[in-house]
Simulated assay, not measured.
Amino acid sequence: MAVLKLSLFSNNLPDFFIIDRDGVVDIAKIETEEDRRDATFQWTGPSLATFGGTGMLVRAVAPPGFCLHIATFDDFRIESKFFTGITDPQVKAQVIKESTFVFQAAEIDPNQASFRSVAFPDRFIRHRDFTLFAEPVTTPSELQSACFRIAPPLHPEEF
């Protein structure tokens, strides 16, 4: 199976990419080479060619083993979580479930993507005040903030 590397930028703020800066995941402008690395992810799902698959968004460059995770203890904030080092099978299964998303057509723009939580099916990855959350989306503004465009990976490095 091919590695599906990508970067994601906001549909309504096209200069702003999802970026993992030391565990804090936001949308931001790419200003440095480190930003390019931190805005490159791997989709673990089956395909980016068709909607409907489930998978995780995992850092595609070092350090390995981190995924985008819904931090229920932090108001459903999206954070980066080191999941590969979890040794308790029940905890690991819960973290993976809270880090798995359905890749689907965005309601506001069906040619673009939204990521709906598997663990919390009424919540989507969306940005609010340049911060990522998993939240329900209903208004046009919320739907727009849950819409992302897939871009080629900003950084080509492999582990």
Results as ranks from 00 to 15, higher is better:
G53L: 08
L68R: 00
G52N: 09
F9L: 10
I96R: 00
R123V: 08
F159H: 15
V24G: 03
P110D: 06
I70V: 01
I70D: 04
G85R: 10
R36D: 07
K92N: 02
F66A: 05
F103M: 08
P63A: 09
A113M: 06
Q94Y: 11
I125A: 00
S99A: 04
V102C: 03
G45P: 09
G45L: 00
L132C: 03
A2T: 14
R128D: 14
S145R: 07
P152Q: 13
V61T: 15
C67R: 06
F148R: 05
F159V: 15
F41M: 06
R37P: 04
R123E: 06
P136W: 06
Q104N: 02
E31C: 10
F51K: 12
S10P: 03
I19Q: 05
G65W: 06
P46I: 13
S47H: 07
F101E: 02
P140V: 09
A105P: 10
T72E: 15
A2D: 14
L57V: 09
H69I: 12
A106R: 01
P140N: 01
I18F: 05
G52E: 01
E107V: 13
E142N: 09
T40W: 01
C147A: 03
L143G: 09
R123Q: 12
P89N: 09
E34H: 04
Q42T: 14
D88H: 09
E157H: 13
R21P: 03
F17P: 03
V25R: 06
Q104V: 01
Q90F: 14
G55Q: 10
A28P: 01
V137K: 07
T44S: 07
L13G: 10
H127N: 13
L6C: 12
E142G: 12
I19L: 12
S145I: 07
E107K: 13
E33I: 10
L132H: 12
P140K: 03
L154S: 11
P46E: 15
A134G: 04
F101Q: 06
H155Y: 04
F73P: 07
A146L: 04
S47L: 09
H127L: 11
P63G: 01
V3W: 06
D75E: 12
T84N: 14
F76G: 11
I27G: 07
L57C: 00
T87R: 11
A119R: 07
L68C: 00
N111H: 05
T87I: 05
P136H: 04
F73G: 08
I19A: 08
F148M: 05
I78E: 04
D75L: 00
T44D: 01
M1R: 08
L4E: 01
R77H: 14
S47D: 12
F82V: 00
R59Y: 11
F66S: 04
T40M: 00
P140M: 02
A119W: 11
R123M: 07
A93W: 11
S99T: 02
R77W: 13
D75P: 11
A151I: 09
A93D: 04
Q112C: 06
P64M: 15
Q144E: 15
G53A: 11
E157C: 13
D20L: 03
I70Y: 10
G53I: 03
T72S: 15
F41H: 11
R36M: 06
A49D: 15
V137S: 13
E34A: 14
G53Q: 01
H69Y: 15
T44M: 03
F120K: 03
T100R: 00
A151E: 15
T44G: 03
Q144D: 14
P140W: 07
W43M: 02
V58S: 10
R37F: 02
V102T: 07
